[in-house]
């Protein structure tokens, strides 16, 4: 069976990449194929990387409070490119109200501080049906 492919992306201007890197390693250790975009990716760059890398999941790490500007734009680009089946997962500092709103717009899950690596791995496994 083909391993799950995940794009871990760090959008926005923030450079705090500890979380993104820890998640990338954990997903890799769980047998997934992980592509890490590096810092300061625009929504366009992220969606184009997701298309080229043929991933099933995009994991976005956002700590700066810019999620309400960035995430909807990524969802919109995915729909435009007929990639709405790609699951978008968000991790970082996202208040409860914002998390609910993002999920309503199509985000598969929002992981807030303290979420365990195991819960993230198993969510991704279940949601792509692997």
């Amino acid at each position: 069976m083909r391993p799950i492919r995940v794009l871990v992306a760090k959008p926005g201007l923030d450079g705090h990449d500890r979380g993104a890197k820890v998640i990338a390693r954990a997903l890799r250790d769980a047998g997934m194929e992980v592509i890490y975009t590096g810092l300061r990716q625009t929504p366009e760059m992220i969606v184009s990387a997701a298309l080229q890398e043929d991933v099933q999941v995009i994991g976005l790490s956002i700590l700066s409070g810019a999620h309400n500007a960035i995430v909807p734009r990524i969802l919109e680009l995915l729909r435009e490119k007929d990639m709405a089946d790609v699951k978008v997962v968000v991790g970082g500092i996202v208040p409860d109200e914002d998390a609910a709103a993002l999920k309503q717009q199509g985000v598969a899950a929002v992981f807030q501080p303290g979420a365990s690596l195991d819960s993230i791995v198993s969510f991704i496994r279940t949601s792509v049906g692997a």
């Binding site: 926005g12 201007l13 923030d14 300061r40 625009t42 700066s64 409070g65 810019a66 999620h67 309400n68 500007a69 960035i70």
Partner: peptide
């Protein structure tokens, strides 16, 4: 690139 980040 400042969109969503000003003053945050």
């Amino acid at each position: 690139l400042s969109e969503g980040e000003v003053g945050k």
